[in-house]
């Protein structure tokens, strides 16, 4: 089993693990997700129709409406939020969104998570230590 470890900066502390869901498209919160289901609804999004519920969401960053945090906040209360968030581009939308989602979140990695993590890999996140351990999916 191939394992690799990424190091980054804590955005929101805590530990979580789950299956990776990876996208190269930035994610809109309001108007981009349905927080009642965790499903991505943006028309031309690469993950259109997929749910991030319980996944380790790996994505470039946030875009679109300032309702980003409130939609992920509602997703947390609805039990549909991601288990953890790993991303590259810091914005106020994603920082606040991660804070109110209460899920571990990490950024500023030593390797690009979009390059080395694939959908289906098993990912353990220790956000306080800034350590992300990836077990590659058996292919």
């Amino acid at each position: 089993m191939t394992k690799l470890v990424l190091h980054g900066r804590k955005v929101v502390g805590g530990c979580a693990e789950g299956e990776a869901l990876v996208t190269r498209d930035r994610i809109s919160g309001w108007g981009g997700i349905d927080p009642r289901t965790g499903i991505i609804i943006e028309t031309r999004h690469e993950l259109h129709g997929r749910s991030f519920k319980g996944k380790v969401l790996v994505f470039p960053g946030a875009k679109g409406s300032s309702g980003w945090s409130s939609q992920f906040h509602i997703a947390r209360l609805a039990g549909t939020a991601p288990a953890a968030m790993l991303f590259n581009e810091m914005t106020t939308k994603i920082a606040l969104g991660a804070v109110v989602t209460h899920a571990p979140a990490v950024t500023d990695f030593d390797q690009d998570p979009l390059q080395v993590i694939e959908t289906g890999d098993w990912v353990r996140v220790d956000a306080d230590a800034g350590v992300v351990e990836v077990t590659k999916r058996q292919s």
């Binding site: 300032s66 309702g67 980003w68 945090s69 409130s70 906040h73 914005t91 106020t92 606040l96 109110v100």
Partner: peptide
């Protein structure tokens, strides 16, 4: 300003 959210 930055794009603030409901909570901030």
């Amino acid at each position: 300003t930055n794009a603030e959210g409901r909570e901030s």
